[in-house]
Simulated assay, not measured.
Amino acid sequence: MAQNAVHSQEPADNLADQRAGAGIVVLSSSMQLLHMNRQAAELSKLINMAENGGAPAKSAQGVLPAALTELCTEVLKALQVRTEAKDWEQFEVKRIAGNPNQPVLLRGFGLPDRGGIQHARLVVTLEELGRRQQLNTDQAKERFQLTNREQSVVENLAKGWTNKEIANALKITEQTVKEHIKHIMRKTNSTTRTGVLVQVFRS
């Protein structure tokens, strides 16, 4: 009887694994790693490989990707100014990292402490964008009033494609792609291609 109970649990565990949520990393203000869930470790590995040109990181396993440590440095700077918990309610530091075909959205938050910055904590969530890409480009289309063509350009930007590749795929000129990107940047209030993606994939 007890054995059956064990077996009936397995599918639920497998389902939980498939529905992996965001990766979560918690660091001290001195950048000491305090917590990292399994999803964060997996996504960090992917980012490390992208940063190392596809090779696994040579250094010790579990080393934080450069993109993540840079993000934490920005969060630390913000913690100097945003010293109250309420200062972080509407604020986060974001960047996109990893392989353009499997981009990962990093979102950094500070958890200030009344005892001063040395007691503060940094929290970073890591999330694969590809999984929510369709949903988000539809939402972005509405939110930023993008045309169908602009939405197609954004979807291809998310794949890390060059203007030339986008032009070929959409059967338009590179100049037209540049014009679309310019309009998308204006509508999303961004100044870079990465900035556009951060806006589009914001939850």
Results as ranks from 00 to 15, higher is better:
V6H: 08
E10W: 14
N14D: 10
L15I: 12
R19V: 10
A20H: 04
I24V: 15
I24H: 07
V26K: 11
V26L: 15
L27M: 15
S28L: 05
S28M: 04
S28D: 14
M31Q: 15
L33K: 15
H35L: 15
A40E: 04
E42T: 08
L43T: 05
L46Q: 04
I47V: 15
N48Y: 02
N52L: 05
N52G: 05
N52W: 06
L64R: 02
A67F: 03
T73S: 14
V75Q: 07
L76K: 13
L76C: 09
K77Y: 08
L79E: 06
L79I: 09
R82W: 02
D87N: 14
W88L: 05
Q90N: 14
Q90L: 13
F91N: 10
K94N: 13
R95D: 06
N101A: 15
N101F: 05
Q102T: 09
L106A: 07
R107N: 08
G108S: 07
G108A: 08
F109Q: 10
D113L: 09
R114T: 13
G116K: 10
E127K: 03
R131A: 09
R131G: 12
D138F: 06
Q145K: 09
N148G: 12
R149A: 11
R149W: 01
E150G: 01
V154H: 00
V154L: 02
G160W: 04
I181W: 00
M185C: 04
L197G: 02
Q199T: 06
F201C: 05
